[in-house]
């Protein structure tokens, strides 16, 4: 298992992004010369501020935008070929889904099987079995007949995870999976991602929720108009790198002084207050200590 963490390039086909630049028709260069590779069996966090090119990178990997330079290879194949082979599954952001659309939970999960079906998209026994298995795996079997708008935030996320599971594939892309979900669901999602890693899949998670990154990502790609740094979490997810990636956008709370002023706490206690759900806690020397798990 630690072999996957050693990040061998070229031993087995994973995801490789080589010198990708993306320019939009209005001349805006969203991404310049971005490169990184991920080996099978990796959970990688894609971290950067809004407008950093994070979602453009996602789109390039999904073939939604065509790079003006460089290329993306998935499982050794070009993006279009990889998509035809159902190698790429994705979980959308909750805000991008029309929850009033007349579809049920089972229908959504079945959409993950479309790529495996013929042109008429008529499900066969194997498709129904894959859907049932995926629903059971995320604990949504009982709610399979609900319309998607009748679900809670965590359940909504699980439906789309189940869809990705039903599809299978080598690469799973998740766009902000932890926004608006409770801690229980977040833990369940993280558990599932770890299982998928054990199965040898690559999971790429776009997130601005810094606090949770060290808890489940073994790799991190830091993005700010290009790939600033990529590699194993302990090496890349450091204070100085994060400051480079986020610049002024990162809110820093150097709180011991402030806390002393308000006084109910003992001196020397590290205190972090934040409106973010799971703040990241760093030591004064920039070392990442972890995230805040308990409210005071």
């Amino acid at each position: 298992m630690d072999g996957a963490l050693a990040h061998p390039i070229g031993t087995r086909a994973g995801l490789s992004v080589e010198g990708v630049s993306v320019a939009y028709p209005n001349g805006h260069l969203a991404l310049r010369d971005a490169s990184f590779t991920l080996a099978p069996g990796t959970v990688c966090g894609l971290v950067g501020v809004n407008g950093s090119g994070k979602s453009t990178l996602f789109k390039a990997i999904m073939g939604l935008v065509r790079p003006s330079a460089g290329q993306v290879r998935i499982g050794g194949e070009k993006v279009q070929a990889a998509l035809k082979r159902n190698l790429v599954a994705y979980v959308p952001q909750a805000e991008e889904v029309d929850w009033s659309f007349p579809v049920g939970v089972r229908d959504v999960v079945m959409m993950g099987r479309y790529g495996h079906m013929n042109i008429l998209r008529l499900p066969r026994t194997a498709d129904h079995q894959a859907v049932d298995a995926a629903l059971a795996r995320v604990g949504m079997a009982d709610l399979a007949e609900r319309q998607i708008g009748e679900l809670s935030g965590g359940q909504r996320k699980r439906v789309f995870l189940a869809r990705a599971l039903a599809q299978g594939g080598e690469l799973l892309l998740l766009d902000e999976p932890f926004t608006g979900v409770d801690v229980t669901t977040e833990d369940a999602i993280v558990d599932l991602l770890k299982q998928l890693r054990e199965e040898g899949r690559i999971i790429l998670v776009s997130t601005h929720n810094l606090g949770s990154v060290p808890t489940f990502c073994d790799h991190v790609v830091l993005v700010n108009r290009t790939v600033l740094a990529a590699g194993p979490t302990p090496e890349v997810f450091t204070g100085p790198n994060l400051l480079r990636a986020f610049g002024g956008a990162l809110r820093q709370h150097s709180l011991p002084e402030q806390a002393k002023a308000h006084a109910p706490l003992e001196a020397g206690h590290v205190v972090v207050l934040s409106d973010d759900e799971r703040p990241l806690v760093m030591a004064p020397d920039g070392r990442v200590l972890g995230r805040l798990t308990q409210d005071l």
């Binding site: 998509l83 959308p92 659309f101 959409m111 479309y114 790529g115 998209r121 599809q167």
Partner: peptide
Amino acid sequence: GIWGRDLMLSLFDPVQLVAAGG
């Protein structure tokens, strides 16, 4: 009858249609 399901998927979630090779 033939492309109705793909059309419906393109309305609900066009990126998933891309993921399915459409």
